[in-house]
Design a protein around this nucleic acid. Structure first.
Lengths: 102, 102
DNA sequence: TCAGTATATTCCAGTATTCGAATATTACAA
DNA sequence: TTGTAATATTCGAATACTGGAATATACTGA
């Protein structure tokens, strides 16, 4: 129950759904997400923390950069993500311009 | 997106997950749910309203009683409910004692 | 119509969530 | 080491959510 609540709470906010949609096409660093969503970096970090705590995304550090990506190791989460992307289009239209290779 | 948010917000609260679990075995009236969960009736009505607005449950009036049941008309919702019940056990152990046929 | 029961709505206090600003941490490069 | 860039944490204000109490509405039976 606790785990489920964490997952659904994480999913019940627009910014976080947007982040998941952005990650659909592969991993991104915090600065990329911050730039695309036009919010402050601490705020994005906060949302990423909730998503990670819920087990929806995972991170990978590479030097200064931390890359976030979808965590599809859990079957139920995988279903959720599929459903979300199907319903929202998964940010497929958003063009991500990365300033640098990070 | 809006619809999805409604669904996930509805699912991100323990009382509402419990209500869904109770409804797993069939429709119940508000007074039944109120009795089992030991909360005030207005509060239960409030939660039922959110669940209904999200399209997770539907209601059927029969005289004074309003019976709520799972709304499985949407495929994604059906997946969600299955996942929830699998993870929580779906209140399967709770014995519902109904005072009367309602 | 009136009384009683089932459910919904309103109101308010307590709590949680969200955001930006300020600040701290981590890692690298010079 | 020192400076800088990427990310995380803390803090405070605004907003949203939750729960109980009081009240309103809907229906039924007498």
């Amino acid at each position: 129950m606790e785990r489920l609540l964490l997952i659904f709470k994480a999913l019940s906010e627009e910014t976080r759904l947007k982040i998941l949609g952005l990650l659909r096409n592969g991993e991104l660093c915090v600065c990329d997400i911050t730039a695309v969503l036009n919010m402050t970096q601490p705020n994005i970090s906060f949302h990423l923390g909730l998503l990670k705590e819920a087990g929806l995304i995972k991170d990978r550090r590479n030097g200064r950069w931390i890359h976030y990506s979808l965590d599809e190791s859990d079957m139920f989460v995988r279903f959720l993500l599929l459903g979300i992307f199907e319903k929202t289009g998964g940010m497929s239209g958003v063009k991500i311009k990365r300033k640098r290779k990070c």
